[in-house]
Write a protein that binds this DNA or RNA. Structure first.
Lengths: 340, 340
DNA sequence: TTGAAAGCGCTAACAC
DNA sequence: GTGTTAGCGCTTTCAA
């Protein structure tokens, strides 16, 4: 057992109090950042502080959490995904959460349940009172969020908009529209749009933004087959035929996110289309990683780091019953890149 | 307050027990995965289960943690760094931790303290009994680890070897040697080695491995100025002179890690050196990201994901007082790439 | 100013 | 099988 390893038994508040000859309540008042009125004489205060110091007293945050009903922990539930260097988007998001949380003296719990965990079990581990609130990013799990919400746990949805819950997202619609505008301005008349197989709100908004702007400008948008694996975005034969058509060819491929776009560049070059001259490609996300990659994508920089940070601030406001707007949509930025 | 938000007061074990007319201890035995002997009649068992179900009972993990002295949480303390898409290495490491932790039904706490936090304060937040053990990655914080160790908290050091603590690392020495061998075999006689400014054990081991193999093969190693910012690895004038020397020129630059190597490629091409023909470059890390970047680096793939996963397993073994080896060194792999 | 006492929700001996 | 009884370490009224 963990507590046997430290042969030296842990010093408790009671020990410190006893050593000074006062009650634990007094010790508690002194040794914790308790804003309440309890005033203690300078003498006992310093005695207590000194004793705590020399005895090596370390408050037990678990006991404190139980008593206060506050853990100073917030959870992040990200589907069943793990961080990885290939998932730049997720790294940025979590980094932003870390940053904001640390500033607010909160720690971040990465909740990960093995894929396929039944909903009740997932809810049980997420809503077990170990965290004061939850950052939720699993829009394609339809059953989970409502169940979770019923537990009363404060929740903020990130990246995707979840009706009924507070959320922090990027301006996906605006970003999609901006890309369509760019392509239209470059003279493209017909583009293939590569969408994701999961139609979560951010993905849909990007496409709708793109389509609506394209329509305004009379640009033709063909929806390609939906991509399942971002690292292997193959073209169907029908799609290739569209790219090669003589009379009214597709001259640009707009992808719902950057990795797909990068891979698409590779595939297109393999098919003999020089980029950007013979074929334009656009992405979406624009993480800092973009600088290092082979194809400097024409894309939208969505501020995922800031989305993460803001979601933490929102969540803590919620936890503290501060008034907050229903949702935040953070602005995105157009990155010209060199693929369109 | 968080508990005011849920107007419906939380159902406790006592509530469930009372509703069935039994004692909380009985309820506890039934409703928790308690391996102990307490046997309960099938009748009360099902009654309890049913009551818990309909009342919506949800165990309070904080209370359980306090009683059991076990939180089912492990912490990861990574200096004062945040995750980001530019730090592929860290993302892989954390992803591996997540993966292993989730399999063992543990959650991962990302402990982040604002940079510049004084050591006592950092120790206080790390060793506050909220986590059963700590994964430590901050080798350049000399004061922190010993202080932390004195608290009795189980600790496993990751990536860097910390004398006196259990650790999980990659075979940095072997990787360094492997790169030297490759360069020597390619006929290079004189190489510039770009080291990091912080001489932590992994960095030192890579260099020493490189140097020792170079020595064996009669290859000359010149230590360049130590790099501070991996994204801006400038060459000093003296270094450029070495690269341009007529009689006995440097023909390869070995970097202590990949991002530096990528950036170095850019700088070298800017200086007019074609890669790999006029100048070879090697890196170290080889995260999956490598596939996407502009320069397919000749590098070492260190299994950071696996290091993360293994460190979690080691830590939990430590927490459970299982016998474990003092340290693990995981094997690395040579990636030929195309820059050397 | 300080102390007493009653929790917070759950676990774990041990007695019945 | 089930209940009793102490905690786990800290917070928080409320009296003294």
């Amino acid at each position: 057992m963990a507590d046997l390893q430290d042969g030296n038994k842990l010093v408790t508040l009671r020990d410190v109090a006893r050593s000074v000859g006062v009650n634990v309540a007094t010790a508690s008042a002194v040794l914790n950042q308790t804003r309440s009125g309890t005033r203690v004489s300078e003498k006992t205060r310093t005695a207590l502080l000194a004793a705590a110091q020399t005895m090596g007293y370390r408050p037990n945050e678990v006991a404190r959490s139980l008593a206060r009903r506050r853990t100073k922990l917030i959870g992040f539930f990200a589907r069943f995904e793990f961080l990885s260097s290939r998932n730049a988007f997720l790294s940025e998001l979590v980094g932003g959460m870390q940053e904001a949380a640390s500033l607010l003296e909160y720690d971040l719990v990465l909740h990960t349940v093995p894929e396929g965990t039944p909903v009740p079990r997932a809810v049980a581990t997420l809503a077990d009172r170990r965290v004061d609130g939850l950052l939720f990013f699993a829009p394609e799990e339809p059953a989970l969020l409502p169940e979770l919400r019923r537990t009363g746990l404060p929740i903020v949805c990130v990246v995707d908009h979840c009706p009924g819950s507070s959320s922090v997202t990027a301006d996906d619609f605006g970003g999609g529209a901006r890309l369509a505008r760019h392509l239209a301005e470059k003279g493209h008349r017909r583009v293939l749009y590569r969408d994701w197989h999961l139609q979560v709100s951010s993905v849909v908004a990007r496409r709708e933004g793109f389509q609506s702007e394209a329509r305004r400008r009379g640009m033709d948008v063909i929806l390609g087959e939906r991509v399942v694996n971002v690292h292997a975005p193959h073209f169907t034969e029908a799609e290739v035929a569209l790219l090669r058509e003589e009379r009214h060819p597709v001259t640009a491929v707009a992808c719902w996110e950057d990795t797909t776009a990068s891979r698409t560049c590779e595939v297109l070059e393999g098919l003999g289309f020089e980029i950007p001259n013979r074929m334009a490609v656009t992405g979406f996300n624009g993480t800092q990683l973009a600088e290092l990659v082979r194809y400097p994508l024409t894309t939208i920089r969505a501020p995922w780091r800031e989305v993460g940070a803001q979601s933490v601030r929102r969540l803590l406001a919620l936890v503290n019953d501060e008034p907050i707007p229903e949702w935040d949509t953070l602005p995105v930025e157009f990155l010209p890149g060199g693929t369109a």
